[in-house]
Design a protein around this nucleic acid. Structure first.
Lengths: 150, 150
DNA sequence: TATTGTTATACTCTATAACTATA
DNA sequence: TATAGTTATAGAGTATAACAATA
């Protein structure tokens, strides 16, 4: 009877799981012929309508200059298009093209699956894990608001 | 009474948590004046003794040519040193310098803490999460062996 | 003056291919 | 021939600073 370790979840545990599943995820995005960041950006652009560069770079938590490059690459692939904002001519609105919408849907489906290491667990554990992680996400969001919105 | 969502853990949940905690982690490694990959490499080099470039690149799941660059940067900072392997002159052994050992210890302590979003949860939940994630890690390792060792 | 987005620049990380030196 | 590591190269992501257009 091996005693179960009763330790809290550390950053090391989390990053180790993330790294172990990275090649699975890289394979999925590579098969769709995009990079992880391009996939993330596509996922943040609404199915219909548009999003500004500023909001997009906040969602990807990267610098605005960085966002320019990622959207450049998506635009070169005709997956998105930049539009002028009629109300404020400084602002650029990014919208999905039909091809972008199709790709976004495929990415969305792939990323809403459990990664292989999770899928190998009993379903009850997968659910317990899902509930706990989503609870952690609410704390993360609250802490983010505390940092930025004070 | 809001019903709790009973969904399994998806890749989207996991990556969202990871991204939300990334700036916290980036802050820690930046304060220690290393990049995340440099920190990871330092953590894989044993406290005493050495590790070969090949084993190191397998641990970081990156190409060998990539490993050369990361170790170059650590060596330029005098945190590690390359030694010749007396048994096989093709092999390079990487070992920590005294400064590397000190830094490795600080990294190890930082990464064995729960990230802020986890630390905000009740300790019982943190432990449950730790046990479930470490269970997932054993599945990940089994799947890795299945892929490579068959 | 402040804000949105871009350009210029520099560095890290990433992989592939060609190479050196061993085995 | 095969393996360990490096170099050369190219592309992607990252941040900072300077800039243009607009508010």
């Amino acid at each position: 009877m091996v005693p179960v370790k009763q330790r809290t979840l550390t950053w090391n545990d989390l990053i180790e799981l993330f790294r172990s599943q990275k090649s699975w995820m890289n394979g999925i995005v590579a098969a769709l012929d995009v990079t992880p960041q391009m996939a993330h950006a596509l996922n943040e652009i609404p199915e219909s309508g548009s999003i500004t560069m500023k909001v997009l770079s906040a969602a990807l938590m990267c610098d605005a200059s960085n966002m320019t490059g990622i959207i450049d690459r998506l635009e070169a692939r005709a997956l998105v298009e930049r539009r002028a904002d009629p109300d404020d001519r400084r602002v650029k609105c990014v919208a999905l093209t039909p091809a972008g919408k199709r790709l976004r849907k495929r990415i969305d489906e792939a990323f809403n699956q459990p990664p292989p290491a999770i899928a190998a667990m009993p379903v009850a554990d997968q659910r317990a894990l899902g509930n706990l992680i989503r609870q952690a996400l609410t704390h993360a969001e609250a802490q983010r608001l505390e940092r930025t919105g004070s």
